[in-house]
């Protein structure tokens, strides 16, 4: 539950900061107790970032701050002043999807799609650090992102396929993951 705010005594209450969001310089004013999640969604209109608990437990709200995954529900908006924030809206280049977005769509790794933005950003950082991650490395990296629809399997497969393609290898999904086993 949020703390009761001190009632204004005529002074302006909002904080006003400048930061980089998805490569653009933005200025935003918001009540200073707001989380980064709330600032992104409510004050910057970037509703691609989701929330499942607002307690740092589900991973839905993961965004990148200076290239590192951060749970935006646990960070204050004020804390990112002057920093670079990347949200799911910043993954595609124009109309061209990021390879992860492409494989997530292709392999059905997004069922309801609600956990997807947080998982995409977390996976993006993984591939940047470990270009061809093993299945175990993927599991470890995504252990803080819950998904209730997929059982994670299509997510692993999509990360592996994207990693292969980004490494310039021929990336074809396994037949079994699409049609089941013979």
């Amino acid at each position: 539950m949020k703390q009761t705010r001190k009632k204004g005594n005529g002074r302006l209450q909002k904080a006003h900061i400048r930061l980089q969001v998805n490569g653009e310089q933005v200025e935003v004013a918001f009540a200073p107790h707001k989380t980064l999640l709330e600032v992104l969604r409510e004050d910057l209109g970037l509703t691609g970032t989701k929330h499942g608990c607002e307690l740092g437990e589900c991973g839905c709200c993961a965004v990148l701050v200076d290239g590192k995954p951060v749970l935006s529900c646990l960070a204050l908006g004020l804390a990112v002043e002057g920093h670079e924030v990347t949200t799911v809206e910043g993954m595609a280049q124009g109309t061209e999807l990021h390879p992860l977005q492409q494989t997530f769509a292709e392999l059905g790794a997004a069922q309801c799609g609600y956990c997807t933005p947080g998982i995409l950003l977390t996976a993006k950082v993984l591939i940047e650090k470990v270009p061809r991650p093993s299945r175990d490395e993927i599991k470890e990296a995504l252990a803080g992102n819950l998904c209730r629809c997929t059982g994670y399997i299509k997510i692993y497969e999509a990360v592996e396929l994207a990693a292969a393609r980004m490494a310039g290898e021929p990336g074809e999904p396994a037949k079994e993951s699409i049609y089941g086993w013979e």
């Binding site: 691609g48 970032t49 977005q101």
Partner: peptide
Amino acid sequence: KPFHKVDAKVKVTGELKFADDLM
């Protein structure tokens, strides 16, 4: 055939609006 879902692209870009995304 294994076509991707009709809403797959809007789900991976964050474009799809869920109820709490509406203002």
